[in-house]
C-alpha cells in the first residue's frame, strides 16, 4: 500500500469529503508525526505503535573502502516500536 492508495481508501469510506481534503488530512498526520520527532518528542498510538527518537553516540568509524578513520558525530535517529495489539494481530491472535 502506498500513500495514494491509503488516501483512496479513506476517500472511498467518506464520499462526503473532497479528495483534496482527504489528502490534506493524511499528509497532516504524517507531517505531525515527523515534526514531533524533529522536536525530540515521542508519538504514542496505542494499539498501533510508538515513534520515538534514539540518540546514537559519536564514534570513530572507518571508511570500509580506504580503511581511513573518520569521526562520526552524535546523531538522533527515528525509531518505531510496534504496539501490542498490532503485533498480536500480525500473528493471528
Amino acid at each position: 500500500m502506498i500513500r495514494s492508495e491509503l488516501i483512496q481508501k479513506i476517500a472511498d469510506d467518506n464520499p462526503h469529503l473532497y479528495q483534496r481534503d482527504v489528502e490534506r488530512i493524511v499528509n497532516t498526520v504524517f507531517e505531525e508525526i515527523t515534526g514531533t520527532m524533529a522536536q525530540g518528542n515521542r508519538v504514542e498510538l496505542r494499539g498501533f505503535g510508538a515513534f520515538s527518537v534514539k540518540k546514537r553516540d559519536a564514534r570513530v568509524g572507518r571508511n570500509p573502502r580506504t580503511g581511513e578513520t573518520v569521526h562520526v558525530l552524535e546523531k538522533h535517529v527515528p525509531f518505531f516500536k510496534t504496539g501490542k495489539l498490532l503485533r498480536d494481530r500480525l500473528n493471528g491472535k
Partner: peptide
C-alpha cells in the same frame, strides 16, 4: 527525509 529532519531538529 524523516531521518534528516529528526537529525537536524535534535542537533
Amino acid at each position: 527525509l524523516m531521518k534528516e529532519k529528526v537529525a537536524d531538529g535534535n542537533r
